[in-house]
Design a protein around this nucleic acid. Structure first.
Lengths: 218, 218
DNA sequence: TCACATCCTGAATGGCTGTTCAGGATATGC
DNA sequence: GCATATCCTGAACAGCCATTCAGGATGTGA
C-alpha cells in the first residue's frame, strides 16, 4: 500500500521540487526585484496558480528557494573540505571554493542580492548572518589549526579571518560585475596572495595546482 | 530684466533641487526596489505629478539622484585629499574617508544597491565602473607616491590597489549590515592594518589620531 | 492689457501582477 | 464503487502605481 502511495505521491513532490529549482533559477537571473510568479511558473512549465498552491506566496517561494541555496552551500562546504588535510591544503581549498569561477559567479550575484535585501528584511539578514558566520568560522578554524601546527604565523586570528572573508566578498563583487581591472581568473590568486601575507606562509605553498602558462592575451 | 527673470526663475529650480534631494533620501531609505514617486513627492512636500513634470519618469529621477551622489563623491574626494601631503598621510585620509563611519553607512548601502542594479542595468554598471576606477586610481597614485618617496614597499602596486579597494568594499558590506563580528568602529583599523602590511609600513605611522583606550568590552 | 510660456495640480487612466476562487481531475481508503 | 482528500487549472479580481491629461495659476514680454 505504502509502496503505491509513495510512488504515486512522488509526482506532486517532484513537481514541487521543479518549481523550487525554477525559483532559484529565476532569482539568479532576475533578482529579487525582478522575479515574478509568472516567470517561475514558465521556467517550471506550469501555471502561476500552482506556484501559489505550493508556496502560498511569492515571497514564500523565494524564501524557500534561498533556503535551498543555503543548504547547497553547507553541503558543498562540508563536501569540499577534507577535515584530515593540513591547514595549508585546507586554506588553498577554501580559496578555490570561495573564489570559484564560472557558474559560481551567479551564486555571488545572488549573495549580493541577499545583502541588499538584508538591509531591510530581517529574514534575509538572519540568513546572511548565519552564512557569513559559518564561512568565517571555517576560515578561523583553518587559521587556528595552521598556527597550532606551525604552518602559519598570525598575530590576531579573528581579525585575519574577518579581513580575509571581507576581501573575498569585495573581490567577488568586482568579478560578479565583470570589472576589467579584476578578471575572474585572477581572483583566486589575489586572494591567496593576501592570505599568504596575512599568515606568513610562502605563496608557493598555496599555489600547488598547475595552471596554464602566462598566456598573455592570445 | 534678466535679474528679475533669474530671481523669479529660482523658485522652480529650487523646487527641482528639493525634489532631487528627496529622491536621494528615498533611495537611501528604501532602495531602488522600494522607491516610489509618491515617496519622493511626500519627502519633498509636493505632488507626484510635479516629480514627473521635472524628471519625466521615476527611473529618470533616480538616475539623476544617483548622479548627484556621484558628484558629491568626487567633490568630497577632491576636498578631503590635500595633494601636498605625504603618501602616509594621504593613505590615512583615504582609509578614514572610505571607512567613514556614521551617516556614511547610508552611502555604503546605496553603493550596494548600485552594485546589484549594475548586474542588469548598463547605466548603473557604467556609474559603478567609473566610481570604482576613480577610487582605485586614487589609491594607486598614493601607493606609487609612497613607493617613490620611500615610505612604502610594494611588489605589485596594481594588485595591492585592487586588494585594498576590494577589502574596503567587503568590510563596508559587513558594517552596512551591522554584522556583530565587524563593529563599525573597528573598520578603519582593520583596513589600515591590511594597508600597513601590504605596504610594509609600520602601523603606528598610520594611526595618528587619538582614540579612546582599549576599553575591553565594558 | 493681452498673448504666451512656464510651472503646477487633482483627478483619471491603464497596465501589471499577486492572489483568490470555483470547479475539474486524480488518487486513496473503505 | 463511492466518499474524500489532494492536486491542479483558467479565469477573474483587486490593489498598486507610473504616467497622462485637461486645465488653472503665475509670471513675462510687447
Amino acid at each position: 500500500m505504502t509502496s503505491r502511495t509513495s510512488l504515486a505521491a512522488k509526482a506532486p513532490e517532484e513537481r514541487r521540487r521543479r518549481i523550487l529549482a525554477a525559483a532559484v533559477e529565476v532569482l539568479k537571473e532576475k533578482g529579487f526585484a525582478g522575479a515574478r510568479i509568472a516567470d517561475i511558473a514558465a521556467m517550471a512549465g506550469t501555471s502561476p496558480a500552482l506556484v501559489v498552491y505550493h508556496f502560498k506566496t511569492l515571497d514564500g517561494a523565494l524564501a524557500e528557494a534561498l533556503g535551498s541555496v543555503e543548504d547547497d552551500f553547507y553541503t558543498d562546504l562540508a563536501h569540499a573540505l577534507p577535515p584530515k588535510a593540513g591547514a595549508v591544503e585546507r586554506l588553498r581549498v577554501i580559496g578555490e571554493l570561495g573564489c570559484d569561477t564560472g557558474p559560481a559567479v551567479g551564486n555571488w550575484a545572488l549573495w549580493m542580492e541577499v545583502w541588499v535585501r538584508a538591509l531591510r528584511d530581517g529574514q534575509a539578514r538572519a540568513l546572511r548572518r548565519a552564512l557569513d558566520a559559518r564561512w568565517r568560522q571555517t576560515l578561523r578554524e583553518c587559521i587556528d589549526a595552521g598556527v597550532a601546527e606551525g604552518s602559519f604565523r598570525c598575530a590576531d586570528a579573528q581579525a585575519t579571518a574577518v579581513r580575509l572573508a571581507a576581501l573575498m566578498d569585495g573581490l567577488a563583487v568586482q568579478v560578479a560585475l565583470r570589472d576589467p581591472d579584476v578578471p575572474e581568473d585572477r581572483m583566486t590568486d589575489l586572494w591567496l596572495e593576501s592570505a599568504a601575507a596575512e599568515l606568513d606562509v610562502p605563496l608557493r605553498h598555496l599555489i600547488k595546482t598547475k595552471r596554464r602558462p602566462p598566456a598573455k592575451r592570445p
